[in-house]
Write a protein that binds this DNA or RNA. Sequence first.
DNA 1: TGACTTTTCTAGTGTGTACTAGATTTAATC
DNA 2: GATTAAATCTAGTACACACTAGAAAAGTCA
Lengths: 205, 205
Amino acid sequence: MKKSDRTRQDILDATASSLSSAGYTATTVKSIAETIGMQDASIYYHFSSKDELVGEVLDIGTARAVTAVDQALAELPDAHDPREALRVAIIAHAEAVLGGGDYPRANVRTFGQLPPDLTHRHRQGHRNYGQIWTQLIDDGVESGALRGDLNRSVARLIIIGALCWAIEWFDAAEEVSAADVGEHVFQMVVNGLSVGEHESPAVSV
Amino acid sequence: MKKSDRTRQDILDATASSLSSAGYTATTVKSIAETIGMQDASIYYHFSSKDELVGEVLDIGTARAVTAVDQALAELPDAHDPREALRVAIIAHAEAVLGGGDYPRANVRTFGQLPPDLTHRHRQGHRNYGQIWTQLIDDGVESGALRGDLNRSVARLIIIGALCWAIEWFDAAEEVSAADVGEHVFQMVVNGLSVGEHESPAVSV
DNA sequence: TGACTTTTCTAGTGTGTACTAGATTTAATC
DNA sequence: GATTAAATCTAGTACACACTAGAAAAGTCA
């Protein structure tokens, strides 16, 4: 029993690592097996198919990203500026996807390259994640802290998009931390959304 | 001579279409041939390999995006606000990639899924394109219209990233045009960058 | 029409992929 | 230490892929 769990975990880790750096197609069952010193056929003792294995990795990645953002929001003081909530969420997302482990990264990296079955399997998870951001933006607009003249759905997708795409250049950008990227996205995007005379928040200016 | 050119163009068009909707791996030589009613082997009379064909499609896509942005900037009045230049460039990019043909779209869609040879082949093209944006941001900062306290390189990548990622959700977003997406990115990102008391531009507020 | 060139097709090759079946080894239990 | 169960391996299948060779067809022009 023990052995199996350990091996299973090794397989998941190797898959997450490969997905996050090489993408879906280049992640072959054989390459995963080689990474952990096994024959490719042995993988099938633990997982019934490549896609079931990949699906499990992506599930873990989604869960970790959601947890990271939820936890960051939970640590806010009871009465807080809705902009601060957005800031905390953006930075938590950036740290989870860029600086965190391979699992959340695999999620973003393989987005748009997955076979239809897997895409469909994770649609609900993505919707749920998007819901967190919809709520944050709605709170901001309804409290008057954020502009209401823009399409909220488009605004949400632009924020998430800027963060997700960062995975394509983050590794090559030296001297910039994951939190830095989040801070930049917040500074650019939220100060753009924010209504009024810009009492620029502590961090900048 | 005529026949060959026509067929060649059909092959390029079919490849661009497939790349932009299905990605690199799912774009097979056979599927391209089927789209235009040929046998897969016949493709090789016109192109020596799949990657040469794909490379040519990507070259065309890059050229079209560059042309679109350059042209939009050229149409600005001689004396213009650097923010307006950024706005015009952002909208031109959005229209080229989202609303334009399959070629620029293929470029963005396959980013990160290409084999190393092709990635390397287009590195210079991407750098040149990035240079346009670097210049726009530098102009803005040096004229005092844009904040100088943020990392310009990160800012540039965030803007381009927000635009590129839009390809992943744009088709599903109804009632939003490519120009709308560009306008939203500008409103969010540039008003966040801009220094001072926000004389919100005509379009919004 | 007939000679010639251009273009496409038929029929394959070789390689890499996910996956399977059954033998073999390793580990746990009595 | 023998028996059983768990885990891995060896050896293969079937299929999709990019690509090739040479025959066939289509087009061109005297």
